[in-house]
């Protein structure tokens, strides 16, 4: 009898769970992967390799690093960064405000749905970047046009995810507030707006990604300043290290702004189940 009871335990001992690698060693592997990629880049460009892809024309990591160091000390670099950030932040803020407001309106009011949805559904499939000519025609200033493109790009993911989040809210919360005497406004403020935040932040993350794609493209087409403009400018004057510096800058800025959105999202949705460990 005791033997039979002990058996499963013995079996468990034979197959120990795979030991999770320690956190430090995992970090080391991750860093090594990056270093290996840099080394490969260096080797291919230093050897002027032509393996179907023409690495002889691509600047190597040293050239890019040198150019990056030089640009970091120029006022122009920081002016471009600031300019792009202003465009992103204003376009994105407009998109967040209007996207959430209209998303809630369309999901909660039949009138708003009937009036707005047809128009929104007609415009939605048009990629924001295809609106550049219209933006140039419509807006007296270039700057406004670029912000408009950024706004349109971020607006639709935010609108759609907000609308979905409102429709997916469990009715029990609104019912509870109504039976406590709350009216429509109270349900909106106390149930809908807080309840949709997890879904809205999903849309904000996507929106921020698309906003960067579009601000950079719009700057390349019609900007006078900005990281996208400078990157394209570098390409036209055959300054290839400058192109790569622009690309990396855009990547870093995208990462930082998306990180900010994600951090804000986690802050306001701490009540979600399973958020304790974070």
């Amino acid at each position: 009898m005791t033997l039979a009871l002990d058996e499963p335990r013995a079996a468990a001992q034979e197959r120990p769970a795979p030991k999770p690698r320690k956190r430090g060693s995992r970090r080391l592997v991750r860093a090594a992967a990056l270093v290996a990629a840099l080394a490969l880049w260096h080797l291919l460009t230093a050897a002027n390799a032509r393996l179907g892809l023409r690495f002889d024309r691509l600047p190597g990591p040293e050239d890019v690093a040198r150019e990056f160091g030089r640009q970091l000390q120029t006022g122009q670099y920081w002016q471009d960064v600031a300019q792009s950030l202003v465009r992103i932040v204003s376009g994105f803020a407009l998109a967040a405000a209007l996207g959430v407001a209209l998303g809630v309106a369309v999901a909660r009011s039949r009138w708003a749905d009937d009036l707005l949805s047809p128009l929104l559904e007609v415009v939605r499939p048009i990629p924001a970047i295809a609106l550049v000519p219209v933006a140039i025609l419509l807006f007296p200033k270039n700057e406004q046009g670029i912000v408009f493109i950024t706004f349109v790009a971020a607006f639709f993911p935010i609108l759609v995810s907000t609308r979905h989040a409102v429709r997916a809210l469990p009715t029990v919360w609104a019912d509870a507030v109504r039976t406590l005497g709350g009216g429509r406004a109270r349900v909106l403020l106390s149930v809908v707006l807080p309840g949709i935040l997890p879904g809205v932040f999903g849309g904000l993350s996507v929106g921020m990604g698309v906003a960067w794609i579009c601000v950079v493209s719009a700057e390349m087409i019609s900007g006078d300043f900005g990281v996208g403009y400078r990157t394209w400018q570098a390409y036209t004057i055959v300054d290839y290290p400058g192109v790569l510096v622009g690309m990396i800058t855009i990547g870093v800025l995208g990462r930082v702004t998306s990180g900010a959105v994600e951090l804000a999202g986690r802050r306001v949705t701490r009540w979600l189940p399973g958020e304790e460990e974070r």
Partner: peptide
């Protein structure tokens, strides 16, 4: 609906983003 007639649900009808106290405050705030 009217605050005269309160409904207690079987499933969890507390607002998950509000603390216990802020949930109980709700009818008072209304």
């Amino acid at each position: 609906p009217s605050p005269d007639r309160a409904l207690v649900f079987q499933d969890d009808a507390l607002l998950p983003w509000r603390s216990a106290r802020r949930n109980v405050e709700l009818p008072l705030a209304i």
